[in-house]
Design a protein around this nucleic acid. Structure first.
Lengths: 191, 191
DNA sequence: TTGCGCAGCTAACAGCGTTAGCCTTACGCT
DNA sequence: AGCGTAAGGCTAACGCTGTTAGCTGCGCAA
């Protein structure tokens, strides 16, 4: 229907999949800079150099996680849009974005900050993961602005940049209101 | 008047100021992960361990740069608001934010991503640097949303996350329109 | 003149990603 | 049955990182 098909995923040997899973666990449990090749190997019961039999280098391990992150984020956003009438798409999209990002903070950061390893990613995955913003706004520039807003909100929330005691639910609502009131060809106001 | 006084700065010995200046140059010219203690020392004609006579550790050097970054960003934003009538504050603020961040990308990233070294920062500096968003919107939650939007835009632009050929001027305009049309107690629409 | 402290130095350590080279195991083919 | 090969582990080591300990020389103050 309105949600295009998810792009093909990069094939992964069974052992590579195990390593990626262990890396993901390490990333979420101990944070980005404790995801080291030696710690990853230890979690798998092997030594660090053995990892290089399965991944070219650390960046390739991270690229595998980025691929997972984009695929899962894309699936969550497309699913959120599927359940909602056109008028309520922006708030639904923002809620799903926030929920998914905060549920996987390490993965979110890895996939969305710093340079994207585009060469190691399946073609079309990035666009597919971002397309819900275009589906929710019907206008490319407003879609990019909405995406930027959601990204900024999540990062500032993860980094504890908002003043203590901020009611972020209300902040997300204020942003949702701003983006539904404006520009979108099909969205009536949601006070 | 409406712009409060800038908070006091942390005192810095002459040598510490030289080191911070060299660190800033290194950060902007060669990027965040080429800002190493050895490279910094070499630029100053000394050896890395000597730096520890002036800064407790690398994090303290970075904290000095974060302080500079917040003070300068705050000054730029307050200045931008001072030149503009109430109605045009949001677009003026966003334009100044973008211009300043893109002019000092390394410093911007250092100061706004990852955990803030709040303990090493002068009290009130962070709030002062962020207060222009409150002055521009007159509503705390919309202010935080606007800030998040600007932050997300800058980061995605710096990280080249937008599709090739995106006209980001138009995206910034779309966001400015969304945030001026909505909520703000004093802002009429700016088509 | 004596003493002190500032600001440099070398040597070294642990941890990082990564490479080279070795060895064992398992499997397919003749 | 035996051989060849490839997969997937291993150790040792390199150059890089931040950081510490301890030494040295210079300048200033009492």
């Amino acid at each position: 229907m309105s949600t295009h098909q998810q792009p093909v995923r990069t094939p992964r040997t069974p052992r590579a999949a195990q390593i990626a899973a262990a890396a993901r666990g390490l990333l979420e449990e101990r944070g980005r800079d404790e995801l080291t090749m030696r710690a990853l190997a230890e979690r798998l019961g092997i030594r660090a150099p053995s990892l290089y039999k399965h991944f070219r280098n650390k960046e390739a391990v991270e690229a595998a996680l980025v691929e997972d992150a984009l695929a899962e984020m894309g699936a969550a956003l497309h699913a959120a849009l599927g359940e909602v009438p056109a008028a309520g798409r922006v708030p639904a999209l923002l809620a799903a974005y926030r929920r998914h990002a905060l549920a996987h903070p390490g993965l979110y950061r890895l996939a969305t900050t710093g340079p994207l390893p585009r060469a190691a990613l399946p073609g079309g995955l990035e666009e597919w993961a971002g397309s819900p913003f275009f589906l929710a706004t019907d206008e490319p520039h407003l879609a990019q602005a909405l995406w930027s807003y959601a990204h900024g909100m999540v990062l500032l929330e993860l980094d504890h940049r908002y003043p203590d005691g901020s009611d972020l639910d209300l902040t997300w609502q204020a942003g949702a209101r701003a983006f539904t009131a404006s520009g979108g060809r099909s969205a009536p106001d949601v006070p």
